[in-house]
């Protein structure tokens, strides 16, 4: 029983896109220790992405490689959650320019981290041994990411007036994007059907519990969410992914066939 490549690509794309985003803080962190910690988080995500793309490449066969999958697939082929591609600021259009906001970074890492400790925990038990091995490694990392983000979220929520305001604004901005977690994609359904995936709907109660507990400790309010459900994992993205991939893939695409 092995998970289909499309499902592994969804996991890999999540990791590479968030790793790319978090690495933007390198050299610009709010304090040196945090600069290093965020670099660590980013490095974990890039490491996960590499393992997952390598596995997907094996399953796809042909001339697929880790880097072909990361660098030579277009925006509509990327299967990451929309949440992960957003820039580190409030709601702005794709070509807007803004200062990065650490509260946005922390809230996103928290919301996604809370999901991934559950996903990897389930996948660690997957009969797909290759995927289970990656899940076991990633679970340890995800626990650290969640812990790190939750700590900062509580400090922000229960810190100063400004940090509380920024954290609440980031929660309000990002929360609607988490709706995408709970509607399975074709690839997720296929992984479940193959007996190698996890039904995301079964994780919702546990995710709610983690999120509600931390938000309440942080004295932050969970917003009501209704309306539009993002569809990044179906390949329909926000305006932001094109810019992210343009930057990430540009050099590699300028030299197709080159080895680095």
């Amino acid at each position: 029983m092995s998970a289909p490549a499309e499902y592994i690509l969804h996991l890999a794309d999540n990791a590479v896109v968030l790793g790319q985003r978090n690495a933007e803080w390198c050299g610009h962190g709010p304090i040196l220790e945090e600069d290093i910690a965020m670099g660590n988080v980013s490095l974990d995500y890039i490491g996960q992405a590499r393992l997952l793309y390598q596995l997907a490449a094996t399953r796809l066969g042909g001339d697929a490689t880790e880097d072909k999958l990361a660098y030579f697939r277009d925006e509509t082929q990327f299967r990451n959650y929309t949440l992960l591609e957003l820039p580190h600021n409030g709601p702005l259009v794709g070509y807007a320019v803004s200062d990065r906001d650490y509260a946005t970074t922390v809230v996103r890492n928290f919301l996604y981290g809370a999901l991934m400790v559950l996903v990897w925990d389930a996948l660690e038990k997957s009969p797909d041994a290759d995927l289970a091995a990656i899940a076991a490694k990633s679970l340890k990392e995800a626990r650290y990411h969640l812990h790190h983000a939750a700590d900062w979220l509580v400090r922000f929520g229960d810190g100063t007036e400004e940090s509380h305001r920024r954290a609440q604004a980031a929660v309000d901005h990002l929360f609607p994007y988490t709706e995408e977690f709970w509607t399975p994609s074709v690839a997720e359904d296929a992984a479940v059907a193959a007996g190698a995936g996890v039904d995301v709907r079964s994780l919702r109660a546990a995710w709610d519990a983690i999120v509600n507990e931390t938000l309440s400790e942080a004295t932050l309010v969970r917003p009501q969410v209704r309306g539009y459900v993002p569809e990044g994992k179906h390949g329909r993205h926000s305006e932001h992914l094109g810019y992210l991939l343009g930057e990430m893939q540009g050099l590699a695409r300028a030299h197709p066939g080159a080895t680095w």
């Binding site: 610009h28 709010p30 945090e34 200062d99 100063t160 940090s163």
Partner: peptide, 13 residues
């Protein structure tokens, strides 16, 4: 300078 509020929050907390 941009990180000032982050350090302030950690201290206040």
């Amino acid at each position: 300078n941009d990180g000032q509020w982050v350090r302030d929050a950690a201290l206040a907390y």
